[in-house]
Simulated assay, not measured.
Amino acid sequence: MSELLNLNRLAYFTAVIETGSFTAAGERLGVAKAVVSHQVGRLEEELGVTLILRTTRRLQATEAGRAFYDRAVLILREAESAFGEISKDAAEPTGTLTLAAQIDYGGAVVAPAVTLFRERYPHMRVDVAFDDTVVDLVDAKVDVAVRVGWLADSSNQAQRLGTFQQHLVCPPALVAQLPAGFGPRDLTGLPFVANHALRLPTRWLFSRGEWDRETVEVMPAVEADKTPTAYALVLAGVGLSVFPDFLVAGDIAAGRLVRLLADWTLPEGGIHVVYPAARFRPAKVRLFVEILKSLERARKKP
């Protein structure tokens, strides 16, 4: 069956019929006359019929050859159309882009990226899900997900977009309550908002320089189920907490939040795009990831 579906031999045969000779068909296809003759002969052997009558002066299609030519032209046209559509999808974005991202990074970076993507490719549709729950990309039919933090082992393929810092922040009104010489251990006496979207929401490792390390276990005054909830509580003045830099940068610059212990650092996290395992990526995914990369580069500029 695979021999009967050899599209090259169909192309050789139709070229002979259309040009009227093996020589002209070879010139059109860029191959030797002998190659064309051999391939048409193999096609006739596979089909068990004579397609072309050969004389010393000219070629003539048999009745079976004329009928087969009509079908072969349609087959080649459909194959060319299918190949063109797939090739176009590899070069140009088509269809619907399905995205998943964690809520905080989704709102801060992925949403602006979707805006830019739609401005550049207004014919594209985008299906977006912001959720802190990690979904199975294949089961959820997700083209690309953005994961912030520390990746778990999986069969997915990942590409690092960048990194983020974690900042301890509080509302301005709370600054007056800070003790003199405020340090990491003083957190235990302040109202802390625990974010249960994190793996260890009450345990923090602070570092300063090469040798200073302080591990602090806080007793939360308020507990939140996810990052937006914790963030809203801190902005409302409930207490202080730790958030990624991409989330708090604007509020710190505007004076709505104050960064504390700026000379100490918390563990740096990674920002990754994650794909279902595949050899090639469609254009819609590649182009969207390029936009994300550009926004990450801009975010890191001073």
Rank of each mutant, 00 (worst) to 15 (best):
G149F: 05
V169S: 03
P122W: 14
A176L: 03
P172Q: 09
V126H: 06
V144G: 00
S87T: 02
A90K: 00
A173E: 15
Y121H: 15
R120C: 05
A180H: 04
V110W: 04
H123W: 15
S154P: 03
L190V: 10
N156H: 13
F182E: 06
G189P: 14
F164N: 02
A100E: 11
T133E: 15
P122V: 12
V169P: 03
R160W: 00
I86S: 01
L116V: 14
V144S: 01
T188R: 15
V138G: 02
G149H: 06
T96P: 09
A82K: 10
D127R: 15
D89C: 00
V148G: 00
G181I: 04
H167S: 09
A152L: 10
V144M: 05
L99V: 08
L190H: 03
I103M: 07
L187G: 10
T163Y: 13
A180C: 02
G181T: 07
A180G: 06
G107R: 13
R185S: 11
R118M: 10
L161I: 02
A111I: 07
A101W: 03
G95H: 00
N156I: 08
T115V: 15
F117I: 04
F182A: 07
L178N: 02
T98W: 08
H123V: 09
Q166W: 10
F130N: 08
P93D: 03
Q159W: 00
T96V: 15
D136T: 03
V146S: 06
P112Q: 08
R118T: 02
F182P: 05
A91R: 01
P122Q: 13
V110D: 00
R120H: 08
C170F: 03
M124D: 10
H167L: 15
A111C: 04
P93Q: 07
H167E: 06
A108W: 04
L97N: 02
G162I: 02
L161S: 02
A108T: 09
R147C: 07
S155I: 05
D127Y: 12
S87M: 05
A176F: 00
A140P: 07
G106I: 04
A158Q: 05
Y105N: 00
A91F: 00
G183E: 02
G106K: 01
A101P: 00
